[in-house]
């Protein structure tokens, strides 16, 4: 049991480190294409964390939707807007804006870390059980049926909206 816990912790910290690095690279790299690829790292790291949390269905959906669909969309977006291949120095706002953004980000992080550590201290996960896909689907189609239906309408609206916005006429 202890061995398992240790293994879990080690896995978590390795993946977390990769994710943080990846995320920082996404927002600092000078190459748009690289940013997309670093994003892939962050997203797949998130999927791995979900597996650590025994949430198999979300992990699989993360891979399918984010890595399979959204990243491809981003690549299309990059392609269609004819971004420069190779380094581009004109991706960021001017220095002052960057400082403000960094300041806000650090402040926010400090605030959140303080309240999280203060609030949850040493709360441990209990006995982590696999959350089965069957349970998830049961929950969606009974308790959360109405939000689910609303979501389908939202997707339809987004679909139509995207077409209307992007088409040439």
């Amino acid at each position: 049991m202890l061995a398992l816990l240790v293994a879990q912790n080690i896995a978590f910290y390795i993946i977390a480190a990769l994710m943080v690095v990846g995320a920082i690279r996404v927002v600092t790299t000078k190459n748009v294409m690289h940013a997309a690829l670093w994003l892939v790292l962050v997203l797949s790291g998130a999927a791995a964390q979900y597996i650590l949390l025994a949430a198999e269905f979300v992990a699989i959906t993360q891979v399918l939707v984010y890595l399979g669909a959204i990243i491809v969309l981003f690549l299309f977006g990059i392609m269609l807007t004819r971004a420069k291949t190779g380094n581009d120095d004109d991706l960021d706002n001017k220095k002052s804006a960057k400082f403000i953004g960094a300041g806000i980000g650090v402040l926010l992080l400090g605030l959140m870390s303080y309240s999280l550590i203060d609030g949850f201290k040493d709360t441990e996960f209990g006995n982590l059980m696999v959350q089965r896909t069957a349970e998830v689907s049961d929950s969606i189609f009974s308790t959360y049926l109405l939000p689910f239906e609303v979501l389908s309408v939202l997707l339809l609206a987004a679909l139509i909206g995207a077409i209307v916005i992007a088409r040439r006429d």
Binding site: L5, Q8, N9, F12, A16, M19, V20, A23, I24, V26, V27, V42, Q49, L52, L53, L91, D92, N93, A97, K98, I100, G101, A102, I104, G105, V106, L108, L109, M112, S113, L116, I117, F120, K121, D122, T123, E124, F125, L128
Partner: peptide, 24 residues
């Protein structure tokens, strides 16, 4: 594993995201 591990990771990612939105 602590709950806070994940929450802090999420907080870090969130703030990096905020920085990206403001700086890019």
């Amino acid at each position: 594993m602590f709950l806070n591990q994940f929450l802090l990771l999420a907080a870090i990612l969130f703030c990096i995201g905020v920085y990206g939105v403001l700086a890019r």
